[in-house]
Amino acid sequence: MTPAIEVRQATREHRVGQTAVVALRGVSLTLHRGEHVAVVGPSGSGKSTLLQLLGGLDRPTAGSVLIDGQDTAELPQAELARIRNRVVGFVFQGFHLQPRASALDNVALPLVYQGVRRAERRRRAADLLDRVGLADRARHLPGQLSGGEQQRVAVARALVTGPTVLLADEPTGNLDSVTGERLLDLLAGLNAEHRVALAIVTHDHEVAARARRQIVMRDGRIVSDSHIVSDSRIAGDGRIAGDTARRTGRA
């Protein structure tokens, strides 16, 4: 089975005037379906850049990133957009909801770019809102929702197209600890139920501790990549890992 995402010796340089700032230095890793990974490290360690490469928002300046077996460097922008639409889902620290659109229409947004008709979009979005426990908030505008509710809308939006990978960048960064905890429960539960690979970038060790695999980054490099649950239980076997996750999700 092809890994969901494969990163091979990926380097990402940013040119700022004359100087080149290296955000990632030859990083390699493989992400399988159903995995639950936390990427930790101090700010500036390259963890957000890594997440952007994993989701096809950005491309490496050297090395390669394969999403669903496709090398992002070789894909035209339109194809890369298709991958972002169908294969990955993003959750950001700042929610990034459209302020003038209802929770329902926010969730339905990715379906717009699949050419799905409005009624069908809303039906599927309502289904997802129901799954994140916000069925009764469908008509609300983001401004009328709490931070935790807004982030759950964002999670529903990330999942509405049925992606293989869910990428979350500091998803609890703007939430208080109780709300954050509940959001992580939700993510873990979705990870288990839908065999969606979940990669969370965080500098919060409590958040990281919930993942079964931890990747620690420093200065653009991966300094450790360890499985917390025994290797035999995970080793790319998403189904078994899913069972574990389901238990934690219900806890």
């Binding site: 989701g55 339109a78 957009a81 947004l109 770019y113």
Partner: peptide, 10 residues
């Protein structure tokens, strides 16, 4: 940026 992240093509 958000629209592009959720799959809008250029």
């Amino acid at each position: 940026g958000l629209r592009k992240a959720v799959g809008a093509r250029p």
